[in-house]
Every structure is written in structure tokens, then in C-alpha cells.
Design a protein around this nucleic acid. Sequence first.
RNA 1: GCCGGGGUGGUGUAGCCUGGUCAGCACAGGGGACUGUGGAUCCCCUAGCCCGGGUUCAAAUCCCGGCCCCGGCCCCA
Length: 437
Amino acid sequence: MEMRIERVKGTRDFLSEEMAKRRWVFERIRETFERYNFREVLTPTFEYTDLFRLRSGEEVVKQLYAFTDKGGRDVSLRPDMTSSVARLYVNRFQNAPKPVKWYYIANMFRYEEPQSGRFREFWQAGVELIGSDKVEADAEVIALFAQSYLATGLEDFTVNIGNRVLLDEFARMLGVRDDIGLMRLIDKKDKLSREEFVDALKDFGLSDEGIEKVLSLVEIKGKPDEVLPMAEELFTSGEARAEIDRLYELVDLLDAYGVSKWVRIDLGIARGFDYYTSVVFEAIAPNDLGIGSIGGGGRYDNLIEVFGGKPTPATGFAIGLERLIPILEWKGLLPEMKLRPEVYVIPIGQGRVVKKAAIEVVSALRGAGVEADVELTGRKLRKALDYAGRLGISFVVLVGRKDLEEGRVTVRNMETGEQKAVEIEGVVDEMAERLGL
RNA sequence: GCCGGGGUGGUGUAGCCUGGUCAGCACAGGGGACUGUGGAUCCCCUAGCCCGGGUUCAAAUCCCGGCCCCGGCCCCA
């Protein structure tokens, strides 16, 4: 029985063409992050499981790739970067000048059932801005969030902004004890019909009056100037009014950033339940792929303290590359990448002198910055040209004994079939000119 | 963790319902016809029924379990 080793469930192999496209997306996002003066950090792929447990409780452990190492440490592959970054901040950066602006592009691991846009190993590009509780910091992060998508060519998307304080306040107004359960329900509203939603609220135990209130809450969804006045009517407490004022200022600042076109208010957004404390947001891009949110984030002002640091406000987001990239692909926004050498050098025959000359030619080309390859399989000239043709290589340099005796090689244009003998010393210049370098 | 649909050479597939010819085809790969000139043609080669168990004289085909893939639920920190 032959031994066979397959990929682990929920993981993927990325082939060259796909890697080229992924790298293109990564680079567009990276450039954008750096233009906003966020700087790259990378933390270990695994941390003590307690780090994640501390943030989110025992529930999350089920969805971790958790194991005990040979030294008996309980460790887990990171399910996201925020915990690690907060840990790093607490460990070494509490006395750094504020704000700290970090970004990362890295792989994460979650033990979940794979489905559309969801894998067990996936990549996120994200930022964390630590040390400012001002609305300016929220605006900076949300503007960058939108600009990052724009940098990849995506324009048909919205950034929907909600607020956890208002949701908490809302649960209190209704006298609901299971506020998390209510938020989950509200977060799910777009997946249900209105009737199903009302039934679910009834099952949850809400009175008719409560249901009315929930329905008016989820109505608060749309352009900020249209829906924020509705929020003012619904919420009356001082704390709630302060958050609404914060939202007003936020959308005003986002206008200054020039991203208003993509900004919507949606007070039904909860974005998870563990550590967000105020503004939360997520990006949605319409698609036929069954992909929902393509990224999200929010303000988390308690996490640093939970990790043992001085109370420090923070805000950030993560873009899900496994959700963004398929949508870009589906929309045809990813550039085609050519994966072939510019020049292919073929020695004719197996003579040592010819083979060495071919290597010298390809080395000279590579030294001049040309993507060049050399025939390495000993296949016959006919097959080698066939190979070059199939790959779509534009130029071939033929290195043969007869030419060499005259100090020359033959340059062949594969598209036209035109050939020209050139001095071996002049081949780099010849190719540079032909390639327009 | 749960539910549905799938798994045939490297890739895409036929065969499965109605068990029984050496599991067919295309593309890709290697070699040759053609020892210095390609994308053509012809020939040859490499290579497969996801794994395990069961039913049967006989299993790619039927049954059970597992694994993996696709999608949905839960969840999404």
C-alpha cells in the first residue's frame, strides 16, 4: 500500500498564478496601510491558550487549534491578531509614544467547518491603533479600512457602522437580561424575513412593545444623515446621546477623509460579543458567492487592561483576504499575471562547451535584471522550442557549436520566427533593447 | 458539533441507477519518427476507481463507517 499524505482539512495549496494575484492584493493593501503611517509587526504563530481564553472566555477554546507542547505548555495557533498585538503592547510598548499604529498581514487558524469563504487557515490584513479614545482615531481607522478596499480596485461595497453602547443601552431599555442573545438575533436580521424575525423575537420573550422597538432599531440603517435623527428619537439616556454625537462627528470626519460615499449606519451590527466597546463596523460587497462580511473592526477600550496593562483605548480592523480575493476575482478586478521567463536560453546538443556557454549567457542576462531561464533537461532543440512556444516565451537564445566557433549566438523572436546572429558579448545589450529595458 | 450533495490517472470526465468485457475518452507530462530550428501529424510510455469493512461466485457500481471536498446551520473572538 502506497503511503499518501493529503492536505489537512480546511487548508489549501496556493499555486504560482494564485500566489501572484494574492501578492498583488497584499501589496496594494500594504502600501495603503503604510501611507497612513501604520507600521508592520509580526507576532508568533502560536501563543499561550490562556491569552485567548482571557479575552473571550472558555467558549472560544473549542474553535482554537489548541495543543500541549513537549514542555507541557497549553498553546494555540492564533485565531486572529488582536490578542497577540495587545499582548505585545502590554509587554513592551506601554511607554511608547502614543498612538501606536501597527499593521499585519498574516495567517490565522480557527477550528471550524469550512464553507464558502471560510477555511481553517486563512489570511487577514489588519491594523490596530492603540492609545487614543478620540473619534479621530475611529475615523482614521475606518477611512483606512475603506481606502484599503479601494486600493484593490473594489468600489462596490459599503462600510456599515454600528455602536455597541447603543445596543447595550437598547437591551437595558427592553429589560432584557440575555443581552448577548438579543444582539445575536439582531445581528442576524438580514438573514431572516420580517415574519421570521418577529417570530424569533417573540420566542425570545419580547412583548409586542419590545418587538416594535427592535423593529424601529433595525430601521436605523442607511445613510447617516437620514437615519441618525431616528436614533436620537429612540435613545434618550445621556450615555446613548453621547455615542450618537460621536457617530455624528465620526461621519463628519469621514466626509473630510473623502470616503462618505461608502459609509452607512447600521445600528443592528454587533460584530461578535467579546471585546468591542463602542463603534463597530464591517464591510459588505454584493456578490453571488455567498460571502457576507469581507472585513470588520471596532473600538476595544478594555482589552489592554484585561491583559494586565494600564487602561488603554484601542481601535482596529481586519480584512479577510479569503473573502476579498474571491470577490475581486469574480468581478474580474485582479490583473492577469504572466509567469514565464522573458528569455529562454537553449544549448544545442550536449557538448560541454555549448552547455557552459549557455549558462554564461543566461547568467549575464540574469545579472542584467532579465528574467531568464536555461534549458536543463537535455531535450532536443525541437522539443525545447516547443516548450518555449507553449509557455509563451517571447525570446529564445540558441547557443550552438557552429555559432560559437564564430563567437556568436542566435536570438530568435518566438512570435515572428525571425532569427538573428549576434556577438556573444553583445547578447545582453541586444536583449535589453528588445525587451525595452 | 449538526445537515445536504459529492470523491474515477496530474487536470477534466464516461461508466454507477439496472454488479460481470483487460475502467473508456480528452488534455497535460516523458520518449521516438526528425542527432541545429517550435506550436502540425503519427507511434509508444507514464499514470486512476479516497480509505476500511460488509453483501455477492463476482463491487468503481449495492450497504455501513471513516477521511476529504463543496455548500448550509451553529459560531465567527
